[in-house]
Design a protein around this nucleic acid. Structure first.
Lengths: 130, 130
DNA sequence: GTAGGGGTTCCAGCAACTGGAAGGTCAAGA
DNA sequence: TCTTGACCTTCCAGTTGCTGGAACCCCTAC
């Protein structure tokens, strides 16, 4: 299977797949012409990574999940740990963004947004620290 | 004022302040010893940027806000536009993270997290695409 | 044979810093 | 006066996760 087909199948750009090979996430074979030759298992792995990434797992977490996936004897608790720490990171990020959103939307609401130069947004940014 | 004092005053690491000079956000003077010599206005700007960054404004948005701040005749509407587009970005990001969180927490809940090898998280990641 | 659509490598760049090495400067104390 | 240690300087490299582009090879169809 060539990289283009794998790209189709996994939903990942070819560039990204080459990058994933670079960092050792997949190790496709090579044909006589130098082309990468992907096995079904490579495609499966890449699809796996593609989804894990879209769920917010980092590359290193994906690497860990893959190795857990390949270890038929691993405990589900190990996987759950990775997932939970990802979930924690996501929740922290959401909280931060919500705080930003709250402040910013208050400011946007306060700003009359007309031709006059006075603006509560800039005023707030340049105020003395609390 | 030396960089260390400015770092204290603005809450930004010295490294970051040097970086901000590199990219032209501030242009401190130089003393005879080669040390950066920050004016009050530089400190003010850096504090401004520090807060704007923590509200999720990108560096380029900060640059714009600074120039709007320095333009005493600008319309508040211009500032409001920048703030609103930042707010939009933040909201999109929050929505994405919430979607991730929902899927992931469902999976974490389903996973019994014990010594047994079967795990709904990995099963989900390796399932055929919807 | 030539045109196109693959594929390959390598190098550079994005955002926004951060770390570290190698060295200059300054103020205080013995 | 010398030394110690904190502070400053520059420059280069690395982080995360790709992405774009150049220059080139390969394969198939007409």
């Amino acid at each position: 299977m060539n990289i283009g087909d794998v790209s189709q199948a996994s939903g990942l750009p070819a560039k990204t797949i080459r990058y994933y090979e670079d960092i050792g996430l997949v190790l496709p074979l090579r044909g006589g012409n130098g082309y990468r030759d992907f096995r079904e298992s490579d495609v499966h792995k890449l699809t796996f990574v593609s989804r894990a990434r879209s769920l917010g797992f980092s590359i290193e977490e994906c690497r860990m999940l893959l190795s857990l996936y390949e270890d038929r004897t691993r405990a589900s608790a190990d996987v759950k740990d990775v997932a939970r720490s990802t979930l924690d990171r996501i929740e922290v990020k959401i909280a931060e963004l919500n705080a930003m959103k709250a402040t910013l939307s208050t400011l946007v609401k306060k700003c009359h947004g007309d031709d006059r130069p006075d603006c509560p947004i800039l005023d707030n940014l340049s105020e003395a620290p609390a």
